[in-house]
Design a binder for these strands. Structure first.
Lengths: 347, 347
DNA sequence: GAATTTACCGGTAACGTTTCCGGTAACGTT
DNA sequence: AACGTTACCGGAAACGTTACCGGTAAATTC
């Protein structure tokens, strides 16, 4: 019960071989006789040996820990992304430290520091809504920790960081197109915070689609929900005082759309008869609402999977460069994931 | 750029003191001159020293990592619990490894193994819906890793594990009471999986409240949603074929209630006019639905906070016992958290 | 048949802390 | 004046693994 945990030394002693041989056997390195390897593995199993990740990490300067930073932990979308990340990384022996920035640059930066302290092998991050520069990411790169970004990113970053994203312009464009095809005349757009890049992109997609169909895009019809939550109310207020009310509203994302539908219900405005509503995200929840929400689905799980994939590539490339004594020159990569229109009752 | 990271030794050398002194200064131990301490801290700050958690962990046999296992990562309730956990544990220097069992005992057990391998300092877990025994938890305790349970637990476990829970019987009771007071006559209950303990408890609370008000609780009115999701449909079907349809339905939890409302809408049954709906959880989402969902709120964040608190206590007690050379005798503790009725439009 | 690989293994020094055991000097105490 | 305390610090051994270098014997090459 109390007995000390078996170590690599115990195995070495009992098999009368050296610890280095045991170590090699255990991590399936080359330069090892298959027979000895089997013996080691068997004994290890028998005496219930567990490798100390701590010691191994210290010696090899790896932690087998990957840090994941998301804006909010209660948002299902990010939960699904994480499932994708795990699917890829867990079989490889990595574990995740999941952190959330609370949509706040400062905490986001703290998260990075924390992960650096933890000596994680890699960082995956989706930027907070008010992150406007990426000095904190630079810090991580200076520590030679590979970073990848997913979903929320900075457009004009000079940092060579791979990202897995969707074409947000296209999302806005397609959504608007759908609304137009459905015959709605005055289509409004509720954006996110004005300086949030992916929000701008979706908005541009919206504008472009409108213009292409010869619709006016008067500034009236574009209102921001600056904090992605409470401010939806004031956004809607602005739309409802217009002499010409919109007959359809496209929201920057699903959560806003949910909130929006709620507010319309309160005003006893019929959806979609009087006003149609549409979101962008593809949250499963949308199916349960009444009416169910038409939306543009982002492949959340794939996004996690691919981001993890890219991270692994980068980690490998870095290791290879180091082994060969070369300097690793990181490059930016963009991977776009396909989006999909999900037509439901709200339009 | 490439320069080696500063270590405790560098500080020692530059200050011409020993590493042990530096170590003491850094972790604010006693037996240290405040002046030297300040000097060390200043230099550390200046040269950007970061302690290696790995090395510290190896030497002190601590990892400063806490494992958290939840059934599903996309459920907001658990996300909120995690926020509570972090609030307590982060200031203490602990980080979280968050794992999800996917409502599956086997993966749950794997998670435990993984956490043991990682040498976490503690484990916090909410049991999966089909966990019926806790041998895997026993394993963790044998490794002398403190465990606490929150929300979903096993009733008759002989393991001395502290738990932070709500009075599920009372939740069922109060919910039913509310429905009765509101004047509903035939109240149905959609349970979770039949052998899930907290589901049974809520059901008993329901039954008890019914009996107390002289209501019949015919078996017809109690139907299970065995997988907490899809099966809600068949559950509702069973209720709708009754000659005497219920005029109110209490769901085991909010997600089921959401699904339920959706299905009622599809059948064009008015909520709450024809059938009232009520949940138990207190998900924020409930507010956004139409009609908004009446529910019994569990204090999710507090639950995380208190569970973390209990874990810390246990870790400290264990350390103390070890320091004094005594055997630590763990005890079960139950901490009940208050629940609260949130009346909304669905009743 | 000598020279060169190849396959496998051992010894030892890291890795960056903490912990334990002493030791010294200054200060009180009687 | 001798002794015990107190406050502070240093040395060295862990902690459990990996990395590196070198060595031996067998296998391969010419």
């Amino acid at each position: 019960m109390k007995s000390r945990k078996p170590t690599i030394k115990d195995i070495a002693r009992r098999l009368d071989i050296s610890v280095s041989t045991v170590s090699r056997a255990l991590r399936n390195a080359d330069d090892i006789n298959p027979v000895t390897r089997r013996k080691v593995l068997e004994l290890a199993e028998k005496i219930g040996y567990k490798k100390s990740v701590l010691a191994a990490g210290l010696a090899s300067k790896k932690s087998y820990l990957i840090g994941v930073i998301i804006p909010e932990i209660t948002v299902p979308f990010f939960g699904t992304v994480i499932m994708g990340i795990e699917e890829f990384l867990k079989p490889l022996g990595y574990d995740l430290i999941i952190l959330h920035s609370d949509e706040n640059v400062t905490t986001e930066s703290d998260c990075i520091d924390l992960l650096i302290d933890r000596q994680v092998d890699g960082i995956m991050i989706s930027l907070s809504m008010n992150t406007k520069e990426d000095d904190h990411l630079k810090k991580a790169m200076e520590e030679e920790i590979p970073v990848v970004i997913f979903d929320r990113y900075l457009p004009d970053s000079i940092l060579p960081i791979p990202r897995v994203i969707i074409d947000d312009f296209d999302a806005g464009y397609q959504a608007t197109n759908h609304l137009i095809n459905k015959g709605y005349k005055r289509i409004a757009f509720i954006t996110g915070p004005v300086d949030m890049f992916i929000s701008q992109q979706r908005q541009e997609g919206y504008v472009r689609a409108m213009e292409r169909h010869g619709r006016s895009t008067s500034a009236d019809l574009i209102v921001p929900a600056t904090d992605l939550r409470r401010s939806v109310g004031t956004a809607l207020d602005k739309l409802m005082v217009l002499k010409n009310r919109p007959d359809a509203i496209l929201a920057f994302n699903d959560p806003i759309a949910f909130k929006l539908m709620r507010l319309l219900h309160k005003r006893e405005i019929k959806i979609p008869k009087e006003v149609a509503v549409m979101g962008i995200s593809g949250d499963d929840m949308g199916e349960l609402f009444y009416p169910s929400l038409t939306t543009i689905a982002q492949p959340a799980k794939d996004m996690g999977y691919w981001a993890a994939n890219l991270l692994k590539d980068r980690m490998d490339a870095m290791k290879k460069a180091k082994d060969e004594g070369k300097v690793f020159i990181p490059m930016s990569i963009q991977k776009f994931l396909p989006i999909q229109l999900i037509q439901r009752e709200s339009t």
